[in-house]
Design a protein around this nucleic acid. Structure first.
Lengths: 254, 254
DNA sequence: GCACACCGGATTGTCGACAATATTAGGCAT
DNA sequence: ATGCCTAATATTGTCGACAATCCGGTGTGC
């Protein structure tokens, strides 16, 4: 529930003279970060078992640190742990992905509403710059690059809103459903519409109109939800990619 | 992020012949539950230090189990841990309480909307029964008892909606802000209005009208938020209760 | 009297070893 | 060959001990 934040303190001393000895302090936190980013970035198969001893070797850490990290990730919803049976990367079902997206919609609405009241000229400049870069990616037909900028765009709004609670929840939800994001990106024509919707959001923010901003955001995200539904249906009708033995994996009793 | 759920399996065997040896399996989970409920129910002072060794004695468990529980509770936002400096029960600031309530409002709206589409006759019967009991508490001028029923009422709606993601988040938020709840309860006249608002929610649900249900819920919770703001302002103007040395505690830099 | 280095107790972080438990493999009867 | 029981292996859960770190008090120089 505080995924991207390293402890803000004790992170400042080493920078000038080259690496005094080692960060020394938080082996555990580092392990957590690394494991987390590996999971989020897809370094493991869905539902893959996470054996503590293996991870300890792989990340060059003690089993204690691994264990703590797994507990955190479990609480965060990224891995699932069963007593005496170990941990595996959590597989979020289609239904859950939709639930997550539903929650995300309303949280982003809340946040953009607050952002509209706090946005500064500098913020608007940054947002418009983001838009320009997105337009470039669109022109280059680079949906993956666009997706990264898209995430950055939304995060910028979270920062402007400065709503710690909602921001944390959103970051968490995002990391859980990250596997579904590229499904929505790749729908033909989606990128162009997405860009237009983003532009509308920026304009609404520029006028500092909370209602308009919320409406624009709702407009945008309802499209995303629709696209997600569409892609899930499509996949259900004709699975694109099924690795050997995946049927048992896919049938998640949870 | 899954607070109230004990692992559903392995909880059935011992019941007939008297306690075979011990549940054996989840010492750790039990410790987590106990610590959690002690914190949520106010068994510790706000910001109180949680020393692992002490807790180990107090809960009759090893330090390992305590440690795991603290990590979970940290991720959950109930305690705050700093490297090498231990854990303390987390003190949520006024501002954060408002943030939490804001998020709660929109999540409950989402949930009640979904509940309106799934509610059964039996559900409605239960809800109405809740209302009756609340009315009794109101008649007896028992705001604390009312508060418990209030929580139960809302949880019932979560159950009806069957929205796992939103439900988990709500449960989590609720436990974080629990310290503020009785501030809103005790405002004069609030209980009576609250009851009327609850009745409106049930009526809207009975008509299976999502929009009306959401509106009723918004009406209800915006009142709650207003009451919370009022109580925070009031407390700021004239602190009711300040234990010795609390000024330093109250100044939360986070 | 005050600033500062230093020391000692208290507490957390980490490791290794062992016990408890689940999972797999193999043997045996049918 | 099949199904079940048993043994062996793999993996997690827990404990105790030790190192690393922080906090408070104490003494010293000025």
């Amino acid at each position: 529930m505080k995924p991207p934040v390293a402890h803000p303190s004790r992170r400042s001393s080493p920078a000038a003279h080259g690496a005094p000895l080692a960060p020394a302090a938080d082996r555990s936190a580092e392990v957590y970060q690394r494991l987390r980013s590996e999971i989020v970035s897809g370094g493991f198969h869905p539902n893959e078992r996470l054996v503590e001893a293996d991870l300890a070797l792989r990340l060059d850490a003690g089993r204690t640190a691994i264990r703590a990290a797994l507990v955190r990730l479990d609480q965060e919803g990224l891995v699932s742990r069963e007593p005496n049976r170990g941990a595996r990367v959590r597989l979020v079902s289609d239904r859950e992905a939709l639930e997550i997206e539903e929650v995300r919609v309303i949280l982003e609405q809340l946040i953009v509403r607050q952002a509209a009241q706090r946005v500064t000229a500098a913020d608007l400049r940054d947002l418009r710059r983001s838009i320009v870069r997105m337009r470039e990616r669109l022109a280059q037909s680079d949906p993956m690059g666009y997706s990264g900028l898209n995430a950055e765009f939304h995060q910028r709004i979270w920062t402007i809103a400065d709503h710690g609670t909602a921001g944390r929840l959103l970051a968490n939800l995002k990391s859980q459903s990250i596997r579904f994001q590229y499904r929505t990106i790749l729908r033909p024509g989606r990128t162009a519409s997405s860009l237009r919707e983003h532009e509308a959001i920026v304009e609404a923010l520029a006028s500092r109109d909370s209602d308009a901003s919320e409406a624009a955001m709702r407009q945008h995200l309802s499209q995303v939800v629709e696209t997600l539904k569409w892609s899930i249906d499509a996949q259900r009708r004709q699975p694109i990619w099924l690795p050997r033995g995946a049927s048992s994996i896919a049938s998640d009793p949870g």
